[in-house]
Nucleic acid binder design. Structure first.
Lengths: 183, 183
DNA sequence: GTCCACATGTAACTGGTTACATGATTGG
DNA sequence: CCAATCATGTAACCAGTTACATGTGGAC
């Protein structure tokens, strides 16, 4: 039950239309909560029906016509409630680790190439985050909002750093494995 | 499409019944691919129907009676195929980071307590992983299988280390935030 | 003989993904 | 006026979650 709250957050940051939201879910917010445009439109409909957001301009119930939304007080209240409520961490699901464990049983043939590819992807993501950090968080900016958003970005940077290091370590191990395609 | 492969891996490590698998998905495998017993029974049915696994002993189609499975050659082949196939990383979804970003808009009231709770949970998990590392991977054990499994555990340890550090950092930031319940 | 733990399942629901449909606007 | 792009949506499907159902076997 987090997508609606992700959308509320995005709309509080800036009132937007469905497509604008979709674009922002491809960067920024999407870095830790991804969503497709289909999900977003579906959810916008629900949120509007529940009275948490409303369409901005003079009614435009026309298909193909831009429709922007803003958060209503009830929406802000719901987001505050949800943010403060205790939540248990969701169980992990990581395919790459699973594949490594599978490789311990059926052999590592073919896996190495994909590890390299992932390493590359993580390096790119890391570079992107670091660019964002330099652009959006210069030394001066440290209001409460800035600090919190910076903290989130920091998590992204540290996570990507972890993955690149771990993948480098894994590839090094692969290199000195006895039977490269061991049963 | 990873649950069946998680089960195949677990069954290759050791033929098991549904409940035994469930227990192992609460530790070990479950640390990076969790599953409930309902999922597991459903999937065991499918895998058997597809001829990737088979029930072990003299047919026991009795409810409430233990039924163990083993992997068939076709199952092993499918697992090897899947392990080697290129796969794109799945989009991230992290509620805690989302809540922090929401807090930048609606205030941090109430969030701090839950961060502390999460910090505690991650510390416990880290301690558990480290215990497992000492127990299962003493200096001598370094066959190809051991190395691969150790690599997976290493990822778990490093991830929990990252989270504990990040949460400590986040809590420190909270402590010196100007308006503790800033709008 | 009753209770409880072990063991296997069914059913309904929710959230995310994939594929497709449709209208509006703009540049050539 | 045609293609490309912007923009909003529908529908079918799939995986994971939650709630519940049912049977066995041993302890008391």
């Amino acid at each position: 039950m987090s997508l609606p709250h992700a959308i509320l957050t995005a709309l509080l940051e800036k009132p937007s239309s469905g497509l604008e939201l979709t674009r922002r879910f491809d960067r920024s917010i999407g870095y830790f909560w991804s969503a497709t445009h289909q999900q977003i439109y579906r959810e916008l409909g629900k949120l509007e029906a529940e009275g948490l957001i409303r369409a901005l301009p003079a009614e435009q119930p026309v298909r193909g016509q831009k429709k922007s939304y803003e958060v209503l007080p009830a929406g802000r209240a719901e987001l505050a409630r949800w943010t403060a409520a205790a939540q248990d961490p969701k169980p992990h699901r990581d395919t790459l680790l699973l594949r490594l464990r599978a490789a311990a049983m059926v052999g590592t043939a073919g896996l190495e190439a994909d590890l390299r590819r992932h390493l590359d992807l993580h390096r790119q993501q890391l570079a992107e985050y670091e660019k964002i950090e330099q652009r959006d968080f210069p030394p001066g900016k440290d209001s409460a909002q800035d600090r919190l958003q910076h903290l989130v970005l920091r998590a992204g940077i540290d996570l990507e750093t972890f993955w690149t290091q771990w993948l480098e370590h894994a590839l090094a191990e692969f290199a000195e494995l006895p039977g490269r395609d061991a049963k």
